[in-house]
C-alpha cells in the first residue's frame, strides 16, 4: 500500500448484557482506544447486547462502575453508528424508547445534534456484516 492507507470499516458486535461478564466493558474500551486509528466504526447490538444501552442503569447496588454513561461520549470519539437490532429488542419486550438517548454533534451540519442509535432489522444487520473489512465480536 502506498501513501495514506485506506480507512477500513470496523464492526463491533455486542451480544452480552452489560454487568454479569466483562464483555461489554471490554468492547467499549477497545472501541474507545481503537477510535484513535480513525477508521469507519460501527457498533451492533444484538441479542442481550441491547441491554447495554438501557436507560436508567443504576449499578450502585452491585459495586461496579456504571459505564453506561460512557456510550454517550462515543460521539466525541467519532463513533456515531450504533445499530440496535429490532428483533432482539422485540424478543425482550423492549422498544427503542427503553434505551438511552445517544447523539452526536455533526460538525458538517453546524453542530446539529443527531441520533447515534439506529434501529436495524435483522436483514439490515446481515447486510451490515457483509460490508465490513473487520468484524470484532464481544
Amino acid at each position: 500500500m502506498t501513501g495514506q492507507s485506506k480507512r477500513k470499516k470496523f464492526l463491533y458486535i455486542n451480544r452480552r448484557a452489560p454487568h454479569g461478564t466483562i464483555y461489554a466493558l471490554e468492547s467499549l474500551e477497545v472501541v474507545l482506544i481503537g477510535a484513535a486509528f480513525e477508521q469507519d466504526v460501527s457498533l451492533a447490538f444484538i441479542d442481550d447486547g441491547v441491554y447495554q444501552l438501557m436507560a436508567g442503569q443504576d449499578t450502585s447496588g452491585i459495586g461496579v462502575k456504571n459505564f453506561s454513561k460512557t456510550y454517550r461520549a462515543l460521539g466525541d470519539y467519532e463513533v456515531r453508528k450504533l445499530y440496535v437490532e429490532r428483533e432482539s429488542l422485540a424478543e425482550r419486550g423492549l422498544t427503542v424508547e427503553d434505551l438511552m438517548p445517544i447523539s452526536f454533534e455533526d460538525e458538517e451540519d453546524d453542530y446539529a445534534e443527531k441520533p447515534s442509535i439506529l434501529v436495524a432489522d435483522r436483514s439490515e444487520m446481515v447486510r451490515l456484516i457483509a460490508e465490513q473489512d473487520v468484524v470484532l465480536s464481544f
Binding site: I129, Q132, S137
Partner: peptide
Amino acid sequence: NARVCAWL
C-alpha cells in the same frame, strides 16, 4: 471469505 465473524 472476506471477513470472519465470531459468535461467542
